[in-house]
């Protein structure tokens, strides 16, 4: 099913999304990957304020290529998500509602998704040029020294993603493969 959502991404929005749905996201989302997650969680541990409000936010695991002149951003597809597994539950406990990446998540992340009513989305890995066309504005808001890994505030229009793990913990990587194999019997 196709679902259209606007950020902020609320609990009610999250609940109507089921694993396997194609979801088009519009509004403001934030980028963060390995190094930025490490810093964000260090701030949380120190009780300090984060560079953006994570409540009902969506984080895109991406390190874009530099924009060519006149463009908002370069190619911008997802990076593999498991490297953020150590940090994701901390952010979900603070209200993070959506994560966009690709690939498997840990048991702890799935549990945190269920507990907090969040959703894990996958964008198509390796489709950086295509996904870039849905990003209309990009601005570095923290950790500029990290280059591609800096935290960026993005304005996206109908960013196409697939819901992989929904609020109930149903996982498309398991159900999709199983359904395909059954169809081949």
């Amino acid at each position: 099913m196709a679902v259209y959502i606007n950020t902020p991404f609320t609990t009610d929005d999250a609940k109507r999304i089921k694993a396997g749905d194609t979801v088009y996201i519009s509004g403001t989302i934030y980028t963060a990957r390995d190094a930025a997650h490490k810093r964000l969680c260090e701030l949380v541990a120190q009780g300090k304020e984060l560079p953006f409000d994570v409540k009902d936010a969506v984080i895109y695991y991406v390190g874009p290529t530099p924009p060519k002149p006149g463009m908002a951003i370069g190619s911008a597809g997802p990076t593999t998500s498991y490297r953020m597994d150590a940090y994701a539950p901390t952010l979900m406990d603070l209200g993070l509602r959506g994560m966009i990446g690709k690939g498997k998540r840990s048991v702890e992340v799935v549990e945190s998704i269920k507990k907090n009513g969040a959703v894990y989305f996958a964008a198509i890995g390796g489709a950086g040029a295509l996904l870039s066309s849905c990003i209309k504005e990009a601005e570095v808001i923290a950790y500029e020294d990290l280059g591609a890994e800096a935290v960026r505030k993005l304005r996206v229009e109908n960013l196409p993603v697939v819901a992989v793990i929904d609020t109930e913990g149903t996982n498309l990587y398991e159900t999709g493969r199983k359904a395909y194999l059954e169809s081949q019997k």
Partner: peptide, 18 residues
């Protein structure tokens, strides 16, 4: 979508993947 992506990259001389 993967095919569309490499076509866009060709057209714009943009990186296929980030």
């Amino acid at each position: 979508k993967i095919i569309e992506n490499y076509n866009i990259a060709d057209e714009l001389s943009a990186p296929i993947c980030q």
